[in-house]
C-alpha cells in the first residue's frame, strides 16, 4: 500500500502575528466545554441522566470507576463444592512466577481422592508484579486474579497473603494484627 510523505511545516502568517484571532478561537473552545459541562451538571442536578458524563473525574472514595471484568486484581484461591482447595500443589505457578513471590509447601491431602495439597500457600504480594502468569499457568483453575477485590492497600510492608485469606475463609487481614503489635512494641 501507498505510504505518502507529507511535509507538514506550518509557516505562521499575518493572522497568527496579530494574536487575537487565534486566542479568541481558543477561548471559544474552552468556553464551549465549560458551558456544555455546566449544562450537563445542571441536568444531573435535576435527576436527568446525560449520555456523556458531566465531568471526567470520579469522586473516588464515594464513586468508583467502572472496571472491566478482565482486570487483574487480587489473587484468590478457588474452592471445590465441598469447600476444599482446588489447588493440588503442582508448583506450576511457583515455577512460572517471574518475581518468585509464591511459596508453596506441599503435603499429603486428608481427602483420599486427592493426592497432594498445599499445606502452606503464601503470596508475598509486595514482590508480586501482577503479570497474571500464575492464573494463566494453573491447570486446575485454582488461582485466579480477578476483580473481586481490585484495590487493596496497607500500612505495613510485611504483607503475606496466607492460604486462608486467599481462599476467602477468613476476612481478617493478618497484617493488620502485625501492625497493631508493631505499634504496641514501639509504644504508640
Amino acid at each position: 500500500m501507498q505510504k505518502k510523505v507529507t511535509n507538514i511545516t506550518i509557516t505562521p502568517g499575518f493572522k497568527e502575528d496579530i494574536y487575537w484571532v487565534e486566542v479568541f478561537r481558543g477561548l471559544w473552545i474552552t468556553n464551549r466545554h465549560f458551558f456544555v459541562n455546566m449544562w450537563r451538571l445542571t441536568l444531573n442536578l435535576f435527576g436527568i441522566k446525560t449520555k456523556t458524563r458531566a465531568v471526567a473525574t470520579y469522586q473516588y472514595p464515594e464513586e468508583h470507576r467502572p472496571i472491566h471484568h478482565r482486570l487483574r486484581g487480587r489473587h484468590r484461591l478457588t474452592v471445590r463444592q465441598n469447600g476444599s482447595m482446588r489447588c493440588t500443589a503442582c508448583m506450576l505457578c511457583e515455577t512460572i512466577c517471574p518475581c518468585d513471590c509464591i511459596h508453596i509447601i506441599p503435603g499429603e491431602s486428608p481427602d483420599p481422592n486427592v493426592e497432594k495439597f498445599p499445606e502452606q500457600f503464601t503470596i508475598d504480594v509486595l514482590r508480586c508484579c501482577f503479570c497474571g502468569y500464575c492464573a494463566e499457568a494453573c491447570p486446575m483453575d485454582a488461582i485466579r486474579m480477578d476483580v473481586i477485590e481490585p484495590e487493596f492497600a496497607s500500612y505495613t510492608r510485611d504483607i503475606l497473603f496466607t492460604k486462608e485469606f486467599l481462599m476467602g475463609q477468613t476476612k481478617e487481614r493478618p497484617w493488620e494484627k502485625w501492625l497493631e503489635a508493631d505499634m504496641k512494641s514501639k509504644g504508640a
Binding site: 500500500m1 501507498q2 507529507t6 511535509n7 507538514i8
Partner: peptide, 25 residues
C-alpha cells in the same frame, strides 16, 4: 503494516514546533 495506507509527516526546520506538528499529524 505493508497492507495499510498512511502518510509519513516530515518537517523542514527541525525545531520544537515542527516536532509538535509531526506528533500531532
Amino acid at each position: 503494516y505493508d497492507e495499510f495506507d498512511f502518510e509519513i509527516p516530515v518537517g523542514s526546520n527541525g525545531d520544537v514546533y515542527d516536532r509538535y506538528n509531526v506528533r500531532l499529524f
